[in-house]
Design a binder for these strands. Structure first.
Lengths: 217, 217, 217, 217
DNA sequence: TATGAATGAGTGTTCATTCAT
DNA sequence: GATGAATGAACACTCATTCAT
């Protein structure tokens, strides 16, 4: 049986994502991938220049699309920084939800020490940080956002944005939250917004109320 | 040359933690561990019943000590749930800080799908959840804590408690925060407390102030 | 240097037969086989799915050809059961003689307790027994053969058919019979026929003679 | 728990016989033996000078007792060579029946090529051959036995004497004869005697009858 | 371009033995 | 004398990759 190159490549990608997600990169052999993809073992080296090439391909794919999502947001968002941040958060959540297996695998693999990972750090995550940094800065200047420590806040934001996709089994089996159905993202999104309302977003009402109080004195 | 068992065993554990932390469990060979530990390869199977036995040993060790930390807190904390929660958070942070490599490795490995992980989930993490659940419930009843969705809050809390230890290189290389020096924990601890003040802890002052305001009307 | 598959495979089979014959299956390592066959160690797993696969292959090969020999005999033998039996015995002897090393190894290995052996028992040896049983029954019915206990006779026949190939060194070193040269088979074959003449084959002459005696009375 | 040396040694011997019988010498590890014998692994090297020492011990034990059986027979047998031969055969059968596992293991191991086996050949089996040879020679001289080729007859005799103990599973599973119960030995013994009556023992009756016939002419 | 065959390095594990106690 | 710990060699096997076709 002959496969068209494109289909085979796609099959390999899908199989790799599934297996890397489940068993980790180092814990998966290209034999397993080829078998699951109904492809020849040599295809992997052929298309992706080896197992590591496949890893690079998938990680890059994830982060490139990821950055695309952010960039599209930033382009469209001509409104306030706050609304823009809200949209970015929502889009990132849905992007990760729609690529759950890839997301889990990449987020896990990114915790290792390797040259590939260092590259990712300086290429994609630095860029991501830049976007967020700019957005937050603007928001703070515009007094839409509280004066928070940006670095710490980013650590905070990243951790809650990634957590459900890095540890879905914890949510599912321990907390009895099902992160695989769409209802979850909606709910989790609202939750994050609610947290940000308290932590990040400057509260106009309170300001007004306080002002009112002050006036009464 | 004969080594004493205890020292060799400890060397293996240390080497394994270091290497698993750096390269992942599947990415590390027992030969590397033995070499780094200046031990015989057979020692690993001898002491830990194979590579998987070593994994189980380390994961169990981490979580047992982890639960110990929580349990000791709960025993000592006869004060308010809120203060108890604060102490638990602080102790967990410092426990993870003092076992950074082990923590990173375990948190990463726990994102895989395997029977070992499932055991950990149902054994240790279920217990941890139980402790937190009880604490939060009490706090909410006592009106020291806001009425939050406990499951979602736990996801939130866990993610920010673990994040710096799971992804220290992100902090270090992207955010330029150094998570390896003690100053970081102190700061991060305060940060978390500050977040919780806004999200979880019922604000007495505000209540009073609001009350005062009300009186003024 | 690349070897053609067929040649390498054959080399492995030959080396394995030689070494298993000499040192036994469990006493031979695949390294030795690969070395003797001038093949890569991985070839053995590659061609035969592991050492056990190689064992199964050899045992099956032996018994399949063995049964073939018997079946061909039975097909051709349209004469008397007695003559057919004689031919089967001769062909089995020569088949084993021509595959001495394989025969010794298989006969030895078949004395172990394992699932493989049990399969052989129920697959090949049961079939062999069926053929012999049928043949003997016919012969007995036709009064060409004496009324012997078939099961016991089969045990007897098998033991003398296999013995020289299972224990050639006993013949050679203790009895000073050389079972490796063709002269031996010829002689041993005659010997067996002579034994069967006395034990199994109904003696026409005697019957006649006795009859004659009887007439004389 | 301390074992007395003698008991431990016996346990090891029993365990070794059982396991060697089942899985073969090379297929059994001293760990398994020690475990089954509830003994320390070091005991085996300690008592028997290693695994090979244990092998030698068991093989020697088997053949020494085996020769003892024959020698006792020969001493007691002051009657005719024929009756003596009958008794030897019976005693050998029962000796092997009473040491089934050891017999199977030794008979199997003796089909290998090794220096140990060569020693056994020249030490015990040569002696056995000598006894049988003498006995047969006497019998033939005394015209109690037919003039048979002694070497071939010995091969024949050995094969039928050993077969049920070397391949009990063939008897059991293929021929549906149970070689493990005492009834079998009795029956098999009679069978052998019956075969020998036809092959080896000079037939007085026939001689007489023939003579009678001759007279009648 | 696509692929089955081939490969040597590397995997985790088990081995029989030795040694200090 | 008896034994638990220690050991290096060997085990069967799988790995990712390469190569000729």
């Amino acid at each position: 049986m002959r496969h068209t190159g494109a289909a085979t490549k796609e099959n390999i990608v899908d199989a790799a994502i599934f297996l890397f997600n489940t068993k980790g990169f180092a814990g998966t052999s290209i034999r397993e991938i080829a078998e699951k993809a109904n492809a020849n073992i040599a295809h992997i080296s052929y298309y992706f220049k080896g197992k590591n090439g496949l890893l690079e391909y998938l990680v890059s794919k994830f982060y490139e699309d990821y950055l695309c999502v952010i960039e599209q947001c930033l382009e469209q968002c001509l409104e306030s920084p706050k609304e823009c941040l809200k949209k970015v958060i929502k889009d990132i959540l849905y992007y990760q939800f729609n690529n759950q297996m890839l997301a889990r695998f990449v987020h896990r693999e990114v915790t290792l020490d390797s040259t590939l990972i260092r590259q990712v750090m300086t290429t994609y995550l630095a860029k991501e940080k830049y976007y967020f940094h700019k957005l937050l800065e603007h928001g703070i200047k515009a007094k839409e956002l509280k004066k928070v420590d940006i670095a710490h806040f980013l650590a905070y934001l990243k951790s809650i944005l990634n957590m459900p996709f890095l540890q879905p089994q914890y949510l599912y089996e321990v907390l009895h939250i099902n992160p695989y159905e769409e209802y979850f993202v909606k709910q989790y999104h609202q939750q994050i917004i609610s947290w940000l309302e308290q932590i990040l977003f400057a509260k106009k009402e309170e300001a007004i109320r306080l002002g009112a109080c002050h006036l009464l004195k």
